[in-house]
Each structure stands twice: as C-alpha cells, then as structure tokens.
Amino acid sequence: MFELLGIAPQALFGQLLLGLINGSFYAMLSLGLAVIFGLLNIINFAHGAQYMAGAFVAWMLLTYLGIPYWGALVLSPLLVGAAGIVIERLMIARLYHLDHLYGLLLTFGLALIIQGLFRNSYGISGLPYTIPTEFQGGQNLGFMFLPNYRAWVVVASVIVCFGTWFMIEKTRLGAYLRAATENPTMVGAFGINVPRLITLTYGFGVALAAFAGVLAAPIYSVNPNMGADLIIVVFAVVVIGGMGSILGAILTGFGLGLIEGLTKVFYPEGSAVVIFVIMAIVLMVKPAGLFGRTA
C-alpha cells in the first residue's frame, strides 16, 4: 500500500506523530479558551502569551533555582495561573458589563506586553530546555521510531483534557460552573459566589495554557514568539469546533493536528494553511462550527 502511494511509512507515521503532538497542543489550548469563554464570555487573546510564559517559567525555575522538569510541571501552571487571577481581578473584571469585544482588545494588549517584556529580557533566538532524563531515548516500533518524550506529551495531554472534561461534566463544581454559564444571576441567588467562580475559572484556563507551555518547552525551543503564531491557529480550531462543547474542542484539536500532519506528507506547501482552508469550508457548510450551538 505504501509503495502504491509512493510514501515511506517512516515519513507517514513520523508526520502523523508530529500531527498528534501539534494536535495535543491545539486541544489543550482550545480547551482553555473554551472554558474561559464559557463563563467569562471573552476570548482570551493572551492565551498564547500565557502558554509562552509557562514555558519560560519552567526554564527559569530550572536555570535560576535548579527545579527540574517535574517540579516545573506543577509550579509553572500554579504561578502563571496565579498571575492570571491577578489580571482577572484587576482588569478583566471591570469589563464584564461592556461589549465582549473590549475583553478581546484588553487581552490583546496584555499579550503584547507579556511578549514584549520577554523579548526584551531574553531576545528572540530561543533557549534550549533539555528533555528530562526519564524520557530520553525512544522505542523502535518496527514501522517507526517513537521518542519517549513525545509519547509522554500525547499521554499527558489526553489525561489533562479528559480530566478537565470529567471535572466540568461530572462533578459538583463542574455543575456549578455549567449552571453559572447558563444563568449567573440565578446561581448567585442560590448562594454561590459567582465572581469567585469566574476568577478561578480564568485562573484554571490560564494554568492549562501554562501547562501546555511546560510540555512544549523540551520539544520547541523556549521563545517569546512561540505562542503568538500558535494562538491564531488555535482560534481557527475554535471556530471550526465551536465553543459550545468541551469534548468538541478536544476532538477538533486532535483531529486537526492529524490532518495537518497528513498534509505535510501529501502536499507540504499547503500544510501552513490547511486549517484555515478547513475553517473556510466549515463556515460555508456549518457556520456555527462542528460542535457549536447556533447563536
């Protein structure tokens, strides 16, 4: 079969793996955007910058404090998430009574500030972050070589995505959250502190982005611009999936990553734009998105 297509199986599976890795990041980031959007009704433009900040904090923890990968995987999301909570309290909370577009503009400004500050301090050439020793090397699967760390990234992202889905759909806290999405006033009347729920949700979404950043640090070099271009693709993923469903965001993320990987094999020139082309098609056929509710 591979001979018929004229593609070496190593190339095909290698690109599929890369696609799966990209898909993991699309899924985690679009999930965070969807969670934030669900409750706050804003699009968090700073999501890419916070993903980048997650990677940088991991690098700083290692370089300045000698805290290894596993510590960073926990600490970095906590730190960046805490910063997100401060931002929400000080700034975003003042905009809830206004048009949602102001939230987009505000977080865009924040993204510029965060990126600019990191670029000033660390330049744009990128900093290396070594793969933790537990995950060095790889497995030979016969048809392809699977680096251990990349396998871990996919596994970790599946766990995080599923965990988030479980928390929102199956637990009591998630039920409050979903209720507050539908009708915040009513939920507040039942004695639940909705503003605090909103703050924590934003912090959680930001922490999710930072977690993805730590996972990405050993794969891509740690670079102030690493989130900026990624976030635009993630926006397209969100438009394709629609933000109505958590599971939808996850599936769309992984699916589009795989499709992008396949495009790299069969039509490399188109791989940069394939997701945007799919977005155009989805807008024509099903404007609300694959999993979206019609507005």
């Binding site: 505000l106 400004g109 993204a111 510029l112 500030i113 965060i114 600019g116 670029r119 000033n120």
Partner: peptide, 11 residues
C-alpha cells in the same frame, strides 16, 4: 521591543 510593551500598555 519596548515599543511593543508601550503599545500593549496603551491598549
């Protein structure tokens, strides 16, 4: 890059 920071702050 301070220009970027300044623009973001103005935003």
């Amino acid at each position: 890059a301070w220009v970027t920071v300044l623009q973001g702050t103005i935003f």
